[in-house]
Simulated assay, not measured.
Amino acid sequence: MTKVLPWEFEARSDRLFIHFDVDEHFLKLGTFIETAESARKVIEALNSTFFQGSLDYELIVLPPESGTFLSKLAVLVGVPGAVFAFLNSDVGSAYVEGLTGKPPAEWAKEIGENHQERIQTLQGLASPEDEEPQDGEEVLEPTVPLPEDHDAACRMGAKIVVGMTRGVFERSNDELTKIGMEIGDLSDALDARAEFFAACIEDRDVKRIGFSSDDDFPIPRNQFPERAQRPARKEKDDEPPEWTVTIEGIYVTSPNWDQEDQKTRQWKGKDSIRRDCFFVIEDAEFWHLVKRKDLHVEVLDNLKVQWAFQMIDGKPKNRRVLRVLEFNGDMLAEPLTPDAIKALLGDFTTADAPRRQPSLFDGKDE
């Protein structure tokens, strides 16, 4: 990366905070070095896997503020195009949403709030003299446009990278498993995560860990050992059953409107051939509508969903609603593409819904 002047640094970077809950306002040097190095390894694994090593970035250690124990690492992105290209792909949007908890629409809104005028200029660049599309040619606009201002684009690119890095450390083991961390060099990111929490275990003064500048420490010490375990490399014979994806109409007999409580009590309903089924809804856009109270709820709600399940002993198990397509007849979303599904599930197959209802992938070769 080329040399960055001090006044350019603030405009083009974002902060990765590592907040240690300790009794005194100091931290062992070894803990600081090992955790910072783990953060670097996670970013490098993300760069290798998702950006093919093209992410031009620097990780810079910032001096702590007086009287704090807040480790601050600045992520400086020099060429943000790779980040936005990744975010606007099916695979990229799925991983960014999984790790940061924010779908592309929210990132676009955040960019719009900060740089609305510049984005409107960018979207309005096409002039009447521009070449018209050929017959049948579709012109696609990026879901998350690259800000015209270079510093703003760099800063937002850094913020996305920081959010993904933070997600690797902050998400639980189960959440990371659902996201899918077995492609590319993401196993190296999990190894670095394990090293991070192993260093925290060694430092008995560290009671909790957080990843913001606030006094919020969501990871207590009793969770360190689980997170410090390196992921086992699966043998071929130990592979779980492959996921099968279908589109199907169901009606709900017992909903659970608490998103975080779905592991304790799943949704219950009837599938298209009136079999009882239990399932969880993982569609972030659906839950966003729930929180905004934008759904028309009835006594027995009818859903059209794109879901995945595993066939175990001849029966569909572990049903996961990846996308809610319709809710009581109201169209909510388009189905996920095969690339987006693969990013969430890994290898999968498709099948027709019972009674030969149309499937998303009818007529498509896998």
Results as ranks from 00 to 15, higher is better:
residue 172 S to C: 05
residue 94 A to V: 14
residue 142 P to Y: 08
residue 136 G to I: 13
residue 167 G to I: 06
residue 168 V to H: 00
residue 160 I to G: 03
residue 102 K to D: 07
residue 205 D to G: 11
residue 109 K to H: 09
residue 157 G to R: 00
residue 139 V to L: 15
residue 166 R to F: 04
residue 115 H to T: 11
residue 103 P to N: 09
residue 120 Q to I: 08
residue 179 I to S: 12
residue 189 A to Q: 00
residue 92 G to P: 14
residue 121 T to P: 02
residue 188 D to I: 06
residue 168 V to D: 01
residue 108 A to D: 00
residue 127 S to A: 15
residue 132 E to D: 15
residue 83 V to M: 00
residue 197 F to R: 01
residue 89 S to T: 13
residue 146 L to Q: 06
residue 167 G to C: 09
residue 126 A to E: 15
residue 101 G to K: 11
residue 173 N to K: 05
residue 162 V to P: 13
residue 176 L to R: 06
residue 183 I to F: 04
residue 169 F to M: 05
residue 152 A to R: 01
residue 131 E to Y: 11
residue 107 W to P: 12
residue 127 S to P: 00
residue 152 A to P: 07
residue 176 L to W: 09
residue 156 M to K: 06
residue 175 E to A: 15
residue 86 F to G: 04
residue 85 A to E: 15
residue 167 G to P: 00
residue 173 N to H: 08
residue 104 P to L: 04
residue 187 S to V: 09
residue 187 S to T: 10
residue 143 T to W: 07
residue 108 A to G: 01
residue 194 A to H: 00
residue 111 I to T: 04
residue 205 D to K: 01
residue 84 F to W: 10
residue 167 G to Y: 03
residue 96 V to F: 07
residue 106 E to P: 12
residue 88 N to H: 14
residue 204 R to L: 04
residue 151 D to N: 09
residue 198 A to T: 10
residue 169 F to A: 08
residue 150 H to V: 11
residue 161 V to D: 06
residue 132 E to S: 14
residue 185 D to C: 05
residue 207 K to I: 08
residue 95 Y to Q: 07
residue 136 G to L: 13
residue 111 I to V: 14
residue 205 D to C: 01
residue 129 E to L: 09
residue 108 A to N: 02
residue 195 E to N: 13
residue 191 D to L: 10
residue 154 C to L: 01
residue 152 A to E: 10
residue 160 I to S: 03
residue 170 E to A: 14
residue 200 C to M: 03
residue 87 L to G: 06
residue 165 T to Q: 01
residue 140 L to H: 14
residue 95 Y to A: 06
residue 135 D to C: 05
residue 165 T to G: 05
residue 173 N to G: 10
residue 207 K to D: 14
residue 159 K to Q: 14
residue 155 R to I: 08
residue 102 K to H: 10
residue 195 E to F: 06
residue 148 E to A: 11
residue 179 I to L: 15
residue 169 F to R: 03
residue 180 G to H: 03
residue 199 A to I: 04
residue 138 E to Y: 15
residue 132 E to T: 11
residue 192 A to S: 02
residue 151 D to W: 00
